[in-house]
Amino acid sequence: MGDLGADGVARDAALNWLYGRDGEHDRRDVRPGAAGKEGGDGPSVVTTVDWLDDINRLFPKETIERLQRDAVELYQINDIVTDPAVLETIEPNPSLLRAVLQTKHLMNPEVLRLARRIVEAVVRDLLAKMAVEVRAAFSGTRARRPSRWKQARDFDMRRTLRANLGHFRPEEKRLYIETPHFFSRTRRHVEQWQVILLVDQSGSMVDSVIHSAVTAACLWGLPGVRTHLIAFDTDVVDLTSDVDDPVELLMKVQLGGGTDIARAVRYGAGLIEQPRRAIVAVISDFYEGGSQSVLIRAVRELVDQGTKVLGLAALDEQASPAFDRDMAQSLANVGASMGAMTPGELAAFVAEQVTR
């Protein structure tokens, strides 16, 4: 094997610090997050801070995020998000946001304050992206009347061609456009709809919890929509008062615990004012820890009164569901629409209902 060079040796050592945590390390009582090397007269102990400095120097951004995710999710090296020295320097990314939400119960107030920086940065990026998708879904339908607003998606080709035929040059076989025309967008009269998001806050649903919080914030204040956000495990917590502040909302979520979906559905049903103008979206893996029969009956009652019930096994960018298919089928049998959606797809569904 050829000489790796100084950087090659350093990269190999950084990878070994993380992925070399095998049974032999356990027998030597090397704790996750501590040294990747032995003490005594040998090299100095590598701390998590040292390792993070090394990987930020040695690897590209995508690799750094993968290494950080594996450190937290595979090896439970929690000091990545609970050590103030690390939190002051680490670059926020979605993997670290998940880690913060899963470990914030371990943090003292000072560490929690530093961890909030990660939450704020990642949520800000998600909001910027998702707000565009949500608002596009509510932008209205094209009308035939002209518009002063010039957007490519509203370009009226037929009217533009007719209006500019006088500028056709046969010798060049080219039509010159002096005055482009555009459709306007009109918004039909909309009546108030309630969108009630019931979000399972068990640990496996962390991505959906994050995207539910940001989706609710994007829906907040849109014409024709009143949004509620309810988190549940075996208890139900109404977080609607914080919907316009997804950072504060996520800092209040307590991930983990059991699951009583029926209780959450009953709570959501109690919020409905006009059943035929309500959408209840249950975001869960549908592994019911409470009474399955009560859950099925509660969903059937909502459907029978004219409420639209969505059962979403995932609400995130990938929308890759893992869920109890038997329960999902039982809920579909009583009229719920079951599946998985990205936040943009949910917004499009809500917009279709509100503006029809």
Rank of each mutant, 00 (worst) to 15 (best):
I272Y: 07
T259C: 03
V243L: 03
L222M: 11
G258N: 02
L239A: 05
L271A: 07
G257W: 00
P223I: 12
F232D: 08
A262T: 02
R276S: 12
A262R: 08
H228V: 01
L249P: 01
V237N: 10
R276V: 13
P223R: 13
R266H: 13
D242S: 13
S241H: 11
T259K: 03
H228S: 13
L222Y: 03
E248T: 14
A269S: 12
G257L: 00
A262F: 11
T259V: 02
G257F: 01
F232A: 11
E248A: 14
D260Q: 14
V247W: 04
G224H: 02
D244M: 09
G221R: 01
T259L: 04
G256D: 04
V225A: 05
V247K: 00
V237T: 15
D242F: 14
V243I: 01
S241W: 08
L250P: 01
G224W: 06
V265D: 00
V236G: 05
K252W: 06
R266Q: 15
V237S: 13
V225P: 09
M251I: 09
L239G: 10
L222T: 05
V247P: 04
I272C: 03
T227C: 06
D233W: 12
D245T: 04
Q254D: 10
T234E: 15
D244W: 07
A262K: 06
T259E: 02
L222G: 00
F232H: 11
H228C: 04
D233I: 02
Y267R: 06
D245R: 07
V265F: 03
Q254A: 14
V237A: 09
D244P: 02
D244S: 13
A262I: 09
P246W: 10
T240Y: 04
G224K: 01
T227E: 12
D238N: 15
P275E: 09
S241A: 08
G270L: 04
D244N: 10
K252F: 05
V236L: 10
G270T: 07
T227H: 05
V265A: 01
Y267K: 07
Q254R: 13
L250M: 15
A231D: 10
A231K: 06
L255H: 00
P275Y: 08
P223E: 15
P246Q: 06
Q254G: 11
I261V: 11
L249W: 09
V237G: 08
L250H: 04
V247A: 04
